[in-house]
């Protein structure tokens, strides 16, 4: 892989290459360049993942001519496709160096931070939503129990907005989650479940299931599971899977009018609840 990067840079296939480099033993996103090829000695692959595509957007935007190489796991590729669909990056100038990834019968031996993570402790198994469980398993619980388990998780929320800030496909200038008309600001926990459901709704047709949000959540909320639910719904309703093709989903699980009102800030709790009820089947 290092060889390829070197070749790309030397031959001018790309001007810059975004990958990882070991800095005092820690892998850190790094921009490699032709005039500092020696830095490639510390080129590093490993389990850690940062939202590289988010950094790529910044770089491409800053210099409208630069051609950027990008180390891309499968999730990175999917996110790039969504960003392309949303016209958030110039796909022409981005060249992916694919790193076969995301464990499946075809890809074994994958090293990825999303496969590790804190164990599901006894109390989490009793009162909360254990992480990494398939949706079908959660659906065996009665609605009431499911709700109380989700509330156990969501009411831990510290409002760090890390799920949004780390997410490769979240990039609105004015984020609804910080709209004081919609949400109570200035106190903890976040208004559960509305806060999380609004974000979940926004992830419909976008979320590429990379799991970076869950890894960034300081209170171990199984966010990936929540957004997978939304993803499954979108797939079943519209046959759309974000990241497969560079076309956007034009409808959401909310009707157009509802969506408009939501965006315009005329939210009513019931509306969100309605969406949630549909989301949770």
């Amino acid at each position: 892989m290092r060889k390829t990067v070197q070749q790309w840079l030397e031959e001018g296939i790309v001007d810059l290459f975004l990958g990882y480099r070991a800095v005092e033993g820690h892998p850190i996103p790094w921009v490699f360049r032709k005039d500092a090829l020696h830095e490639l000695e510390a080129f590093r692959e490993g389990p850690y993942r940062y939202p590289l595509e988010k950094l790529a957007v910044e770089i491409l935007r800053e210099d409208p001519r630069v051609r950027l190489g990008l180390l891309a796991r499968s999730c990175t590729e999917r996110a790039v496709t969504v960003l392309q669909a949303l016209h958030a990056l110039d796909r022409e100038r981005l060249i992916l160096l694919q790193e076969p990834c995301c464990p499946s019968p075809l890809h074994r031996g994958v090293v990825c931070s999303s496969l590790a993570g804190p164990e599901n402790g006894s109390q989490k198994r009793r009162d909360g939503i254990p992480r990494g469980r398939p949706l079908e398993e959660l659906e065996t619980w009665e609605a009431d129990e499911r709700f109380s388990r989700w509330m156990h998780e969501l009411e831990k929320c510290l409002k760090c907005y890390g799920c949004r800030d780390v997410c490769p496909v979240c990039f609105c200038d004015q984020c609804t989650l910080q709209d004081p008309e919609l949400f109570e600001t200035g106190s903890l926990p976040a208004e559960a479940p509305h806060f999380h459901l609004v974000r979940a709704v926004h992830m419909a047709g976008r979320c590429v299931d990379c799991g970076l949000c869950e890894e960034a959540c300081p209170v171990d909320i199984p966010l990936r599971t929540l957004y997978r639910k939304v993803g499954a719904l979108v797939r079943d309703l519209y046959g759309y899977v974000p990241g497969h093709e560079p076309v956007p989903l034009l409808w959401g699980p909310l009707g157009d009018g509802e969506l408009e009102r939501l965006v315009a800030g005329e939210r009513s709790r019931e509306m969100v609840w309605e969406a949630v009820r549909r989301c949770s089947g």
């Binding site: 820690h26 892998p27 850190i28 996103p29 850690y48 993942r49 940062y50 939202p51 931070s113 760090c160 890390g162 780390v166 890894e215 960034a216 959540c217 300081p218």
Partner: peptide, 13 residues
């Protein structure tokens, strides 16, 4: 960005 491999915060902020 949070430093993912940091012993104190392990990639969260």
């Amino acid at each position: 960005l949070p430093l993912k491999s940091h012993p104190v915060n392990e990639g969260k902020l």
